[in-house]
Design a protein around this nucleic acid. Sequence first.
RNA 1: GGCGGGGUAGCCAAGUGGUAAGGCACGGCUCUGCAAAAGCUGUAUACGUCGGUUCGAUUCCGACCCUCGCCUCCA
Length: 469
Amino acid sequence: MPLRFFNTLTRAVEGFTPREPGLVRLYTCGPTVYNFAHIGNFRAYIFEDLLQRHLEYRGLRVLRVMNLTDVDDKTIRGSRAAGLPLAEFTKPFKDAFFEDLDALRIKRADHFPAATEPQHISRMVEMISALVDKGHAYRAEDGSVYFRVRSFPRYGCLAHYNLDELRDGVRVSNDEYDKENAGDFALWKAWSGQDGDVAWDSPWGRGRPGWHIECSAMATGILGDEIDIHCGGEDNIFPHHEAEIAQSECVTGRTFVRLWMHCRHLQVEGSKMAKSAGNFFTLRDLLEKGWTGREVRYALISVKYREPLNFTFDGLSAARSALQRLDEWSVRLAETAAGAQPDSVSNELAAFGEALDDDLNISAALAALFETVRATNRKMDEGALSAPQAAGLLAELSKIQTVLAFGPDGAAVPSTVNALLERRAAARAAKDWKLSDVLRDEILAAGWTVKDTKDGQKLAPGPHAVATT
RNA sequence: GGCGGGGUAGCCAAGUGGUAAGGCACGGCUCUGCAAAAGCUGUAUACGUCGGUUCGAUUCCGACCCUCGCCUCCA
């Protein structure tokens, strides 16, 4: 089944093949590092991770870039408030971002360019110069340079906006009073006192780059003039990605991006996530409440990216249960396989990949997985699943885990807990139930749960902290 | 005002012109010293409202209601 994805540009599901056979050039808008990223940000990054992993599952190589915006109004404001140089202010948030990516099992991009790196600033200046030379941009009196949207007739094609119908005067800040047209956006922002020592020299005077040109410069600089897929959250469609198209295509004369994919925002408990509403969460907030990265990953990935996602604690709880079901299945399969080799290439889970081929239909893909879980559990109950069959299923599971990354956290069992387990086994052999229960409580206090099965004691991490809103 | 997305059983959520996946929750059973867990299994008047097209619509068309988002630097 061929890959097909919804293209924001055409508003249609289209078949996808990369320009260069076997290699997908993917650009994904990354975080602005002025704070810890929140779970809404991570919905976008997890959607992009699913996209990358599925493309790789289908045998394509993915060359992925994710930028870090480390200079803009918010980072400058934050650094001034903290009394730190810009780079010192953003560094901890960059580090935290990578820790969060790991916790959520998001694959690292091949490149994480930061806007302030000299080679990118140079390219931004080059691109702006080219735009000025071609008449697509102009220098205003204060030294800022603006893109002339009227010079690019297709401006609005991505968001499907008609320039003439845009409301005038909305959110046009005071420092942009000398633009030719309200829709013109800043390519280069002249230095102002509030910028402190954040400034670079340019042909138009000291200043700093506008946000949009960062992405155009880093995307074309690293991936080339024509990119296969560009992703982001839906709020990036306008003006950010619209501006990127205009800037890039006016410089290169080429089609900047062939496929635009955007994910919907998430809500929290049915409402827009907002600090004022008290429903604003970073990943760190959730980890502190005792949820694990993979549980958050499941909750954020399990709703199709083009649908609004309602993030709830009930949903996290459901994620935990569903993951445990998969864990148990995997353990049972391993026991049944008992080290056997698959005797044939099984394809029980073909429907999983086919669902993802269809515009990343993760719900249908997970349904296919869970149907297989139930069917094969039934067989194992009946003793009707052979060791090679179980081994074949394990091999398939392992392959789809390269896409889902839902595998259990491998926590090492402390020796103290192992000692308690041994004592408890002895107590149980002696049918000393009272001591057995005391030891069970001690193990629980140490952060582990012991279950008695027909095959003896089994240990699991947890229980997790009781999580509430 | 412009553009767009949603409304499917208690909750989350696929999907289809011919009476509807999956997950969670809930009940039953198995297992079990107890407990928990796990597995199997079951229930449900589930397709926003009103019209239309059709042999037949949840699926197509129209209107309406509710809800969410974007409209110039918020993923």
